[in-house]
């Protein structure tokens, strides 16, 4: 057996181990778009609250009118759904381009592992909503999202882990400074997603 053959053998083993445990068809572009949706959503929400109450400062802490709350809730759900659909659509496209099946054992594990913190967080926030503790929604969404990214990161690019840590830190900061929580939320879901998406897009030449 030639030395070259051994190297080939070893590199094929390593390649397979990696491909069978990591899902790498995640699209960076979908991160950028999700960030843009989040910023637009936050902006519309801000305007909505603004027009209803006039004064600019700390309003997000004082919104209690049911109609405004419902509208804010709908904006949040729309942003979430749009981001998810974009992510799914672009990921399927990316997987097709690479000749990979997008629904394989690895992507299934990725989804399951991310869902656990994500659904826990979602239910947690719904409970908060029912109890009227609106102030913790922004930090909670950032923190649970960050946890979910870290949980999923072992099944995809390890860069996702860093995005997760950043989201958690921003979430904790939002908790510490509740008056600015909407700004932190825009930073986490908007800005960070755009930065992360662009980095991934160029790093992995998608």
């Amino acid at each position: 057996m030639q030395e070259k053959d051994i190297y080939n053998e070893l590199s094929s083993i390593r390649n397979l181990m990696e491909r069978s445990t990591k899902f790498i068809s995640l699209s960076g572009l979908s991160g950028v778009l999700a960030g843009i949706y989040a910023l637009i959503g936050a902006f519309i929400g801000y305007k909505l609250v603004d027009s209803d109450f006039g004064e600019l400062d700390y309003k997000d802490q004082y919104v209690t009118e049911p109609r405004v709350l419902l509208e804010l809730f709908l904006i949040a759900v729309t942003v979430l759904l749009l981001s998810l659909l974009t992510c799914i659509f672009l990921t399927i496209r990316q997987a097709r381009k690479r000749g990979e099946n997008f629904w394989n054992p690895v992507s299934q594990r990725l989804v399951v592992n991310m869902s656990i913190p994500l659904f826990t967080g979602g239910l947690f926030m719904l409970i908060l909503l029912f109890q009227g503790s609106y102030g913790i929604i922004a930090p909670a969404s950032l923190i649970f999202y960050g946890l979910s990214l870290i949980a999923g990161s072992q099944f995809t690019f390890s860069d996702v882990k860093w995005l997760g840590y950043c989201q958690i830190i921003i979430g904790l900061a939002a908790m510490l400074f509740p008056a600015y929580s909407i700004l932190f939320w825009m930073m986490g879901f908007g800005l960070l997603h755009i930065i992360y998406g662009s980095v991934m897009h160029f790093k992995y030449k998608q």
Partner: peptide
């Protein structure tokens, strides 16, 4: 074997696709 050592388990069709 590389795939099965790196993963808890793998099903036939996914293996077929991967290899």
């Amino acid at each position: 074997m590389s795939v099965l050592v790196a993963n808890d388990r793998y099903d036939f069709n996914s293996l077929k696709e991967l290899l």
